[in-house]
Amino acid sequence: MKLPRGRLDKSRVVTDLRDTLADVLDRELTGYAVFESQETLLLDGEGRGVITFTDGVPVLAYHTGTDRGGPPALADLAVPGPYHVSLYALDAADLESAHGAGELQVPPGMPAERLGGDPALADSTRRAAPDERLSAMGDGDAAVPGDGTAEQSAVEAFLDDAEKIEAIKQQARSEARERAQEWDF
């Protein structure tokens, strides 16, 4: 995915991607976000995720580490935080050619569900999305508010990835041991 660099809007470490997605939606940002998990030891933890937005509503997702786009890129990004997040603002015209890449598209509410873990924010995002985005995505999103079937299968797919979960647990244990000394418990 090629994007113009844009104007840096914010750059910070966040523990919950929900807050970033809510902020982008509130401010109706047009541009993109670059996410980098701080947990580089995790599987798929290498590389960065990119999500583009039009008026605060997510359009494309891509993961540089796995070279996957669309919903699979969100699965690659779904590892525990904290994350370093940079937001860039662009003019809508600058995103036009990138947004033509249909295979990278994600349903509007999906990042809020899978990265933010907030079904209510996903509902608000879907309400803010243009009608053609909702109808175009077909069964990929919980297009009908309250229809969580797609989300449930994403959660189940996550839970079926025993290796990834073991990596999350192992990382947490080693972090807990290191911090016990740092915090002088």
Binding site: R114, G117, V155, F158, I165
Partner: peptide
């Protein structure tokens, strides 16, 4: 919550 971030 039954979401990926909450479970992880």
């Amino acid at each position: 919550q039954p979401t990926i971030p909450a479970i992880s």
